[in-house]
């Protein structure tokens, strides 16, 4: 028998360099109660359109969203912020049941639209009332007119006719601030527009069905600064007409366009409050670390 070889010395991590791990539920500032009060019904005078209540979503066994409660109110822009993979896009996609397209997604908890559970609605009706703009501009390979008209038409029907649709299409394009640029070229293929125009076309398409809530999944991340500015102005204008939920990686953007901000981390809601409160006086330590990069 050989004598046992000596074990290598244990490397100790320098405490000052150790990653900071804070459990958001038990953080030192005692923020949980304050946030629970902020997301509770009746905490604002504005009309509540959607309510996410104790929502958890998992892909297979991998949880993506954990026990999130959030209100979506009329006339407000709710900005969801947080690092990549924190569940904000999953949360957004669950609001119009797009998560159902992923076979493995399992959800618990409830989401209501004007007090009615969204699972009691037809998915097609729900998605007309809660429409969505994606990260990548994704116009259909058709003309500009058809892109918007498709959203209004009843499924695959040809009716209503072009002349009936024209004013509605125009209205949607005007709302999206695109009419002045494309009004004369409605027959042009949508894919020949610039990236920023394509994204505004997608916004027009989403607005065409006159939705109650507009979901935006990082709508500017594929765009140049000028187009981003145009779309941010548009969002600010649109909030009068429709409740907006926007997911963004960009904290400055959340600051510019958001009325309320929800900060998510590892699938949990860490912080919720008005834009000033979250950025200037965050309640949770995790939020302080995250938004600290903005102004610091």
């Amino acid at each position: 028998m050989n004598s046992p070889t000596p074990l290598p010395p244990i490397k100790r991590i320098d405490p000052s360099r150790a990653p900071k791990v804070v459990d958001p539920r038990h953080d030192s500032l005692g923020a949980a109660d304050a946030i629970a009060a902020a997301v509770a019904p009746g905490s604002s005078e504005r009309v509540e359109r959607m309510r996410i209540d104790d929502l958890s979503i998992a892909y297979g066994t991998k949880p993506a969203v954990r026990n999130v409660t959030l209100p979506v109110r009329e006339g407000e822009v709710l900005a969801l912020i947080g690092p990549s993979g924190c569940g904000k896009t999953t949360l957004l996609r669950s609001l119009n049941r797009l998560t159902e397209l992923t076979d493995t997604a399992v959800a618990t908890g409830s989401i209501t639209l004007d007090g009615q559970n969204i699972h009691a609605l037809e998915a097609t009706d729900l998605r007309r009332r809660v429409s969505m703009v994606f990260q990548q501009p994704n116009p259909f390979p058709m003309s500009i007119f058809e892109n918007v008209a498709y959203a209004i038409r009843e499924q695959a029907a040809r009716r209503p006719s072009k002349s009936t649709l024209a004013p509605l299409v125009r209205e949607a394009l005007e709302d999206a601030g695109l009419w002045d640029e494309v009004g004369d070229n409605l027959d042009h293929p949508a894919l020949r527009l610039s990236g920023g125009q394509q994204q505004r076309l997608c916004i027009a398409r989403a607005l065409a069905s006159k939705p109650d809530v507009l979901l935006m999944d990082e709508p500017c991340s594929a765009l140049d600064p000028k187009s981003t500015e145009i779309i941010e102005e548009l969002i600010t204008r649109l909030r009068e007409k429709v409740a907006i939920v926007i997911v963004t990686h960009n904290l400055q953007q959340a600051h510019r366009v958001g009325d309320n901000v929800a900060f998510m981390y590892l699938g949990e809601l860490v912080e919720y409050g008005t834009v000033d409160q979250v950025f200037n006086a965050p309640r949770a330590e995790r939020t302080q670390d995250y938004v600290g990069g903005v102004f610091g």
């Binding site: 097609t124 998605r127 259909f140 498709y150 069905s209």
Partner: peptide, 16 residues
């Protein structure tokens, strides 16, 4: 896939 998703997000059925 995002083109299909865009259509579903407009409340369209698979068939349309």
């Amino acid at each position: 896939a995002q083109v299909r998703e865009a259509s579903y997000a407009l409340g369209k059925t698979k068939w349309s």
